[in-house]
């Protein structure tokens, strides 16, 4: 395996049943990664969720998670290795 590139990507996971729909996370994400679900969680809140087409733009800045009063957001960073694989 030849690895030609290694880059960092980040993404968030929102625990929808912890979300209370304050939308602080949406207000602070400069990349507009997060939106409001049209579905409701077990408490009846339209929970926040990563928007599929935008998710890859997440920079891993953690702002959303830092503002979340309900610790509903986990931020991950992963290294993606790109290269020729036999």
């Amino acid at each position: 395996m030849l690895i030609s590139e290694s880059r960092k990507t980040s993404y968030i996971v929102i625990d929808k049943d912890k979300c209370k729909a304050c939308y602080y996370c949406i207000a602070v994400c400069s990349k507009n990664v997060i939106g409001i679900s049209k579905n409701i969680n077990r408490f009846g809140f339209n929970y926040a969720e990563p928007i599929e087409e935008k998710a890859h733009e997440c920079t891993g800045c953690k702002s959303c998670a830092i503002m979340c009063p309900d610790i509903a957001i986990t931020v991950y960073s992963s290294r993606v290795l790109e290269g020729d694989i036999d």
Partner: peptide, 21 residues
């Protein structure tokens, strides 16, 4: 195969503090 991305270890850079159930 070429130019395939492989996810190396995913690492939580922000998560619930261990001390909080």
């Amino acid at each position: 195969m070429s130019n395939r991305g492989i996810n190396d270890m995913d690492n939580a850079i922000f998560r619930r503090p261990d001390i909080m159930p």
